[in-house]
């Protein structure tokens, strides 16, 4: 319960600090927002490694190829990075830039996931009666 208190208080402090700074200097308010978001993510990023290692255990039980797991991990990481970057872009007022970042990331994810999709398709084609 300690960590949730930390997250909530950091969020509130960041909000109030941006509220105080925004009329004085608008650009600094954005920096405060970014820093607050970073601190919250760094607080919870250790939990993430725990979740990922338990995922790895589950994958090893199923006996799937571990390449699939690393690919999935990469795609999840790209998703988080994109979300974060697009959020910063939107916050600074560049909404269209954020959309382009998201679009580019989606395309990269699509390209990375293409081998899996073709794999599934070839399996299905093999199952079909000739």
């Amino acid at each position: 319960m300690d960590i949730i208190l930390k997250i909530v208080s950091i969020g509130l402090i960041t909000c109030l600090a941006t509220l105080v700074i925004r009329p004085l200097r608008n650009d600094f308010a954005i920096f405060i927002g970014i820093a607050g978001g970073m601190i919250i993510i760094f607080l919870v990023i250790n939990y993430f490694t725990g979740v990922l290692s338990s995922f790895k255990d589950i994958i090893s039980y199923t006996g799937l190829n571990s390449n699939l797991y690393t690919l999935l991990l990469k795609i999840i990481g790209i998703g988080y990075l994109l979300e974060f970057t697009a959020g910063i872009c939107n916050e600074t007022g560049n909404n269209s830039l954020g959309d382009k970042v998201l679009l580019g990331g989606k395309l990269v994810i699509m390209v990375m996931a293409m081998p899996i999709i073709t794999n599934i398709l070839t399996i299905i084609m093999g199952l079909l009666p000739k």
Binding site: I10, I13, T14, L24, F28, A35, G36, I39, L43
Partner: peptide, 13 residues
């Protein structure tokens, strides 16, 4: 990774 960086940025602003 502390809260003080928020206060630092606010103070510099």
């Amino acid at each position: 990774m502390d809260v003080e960086i928020i206060f630092k940025i606010a103070a510099i602003g």
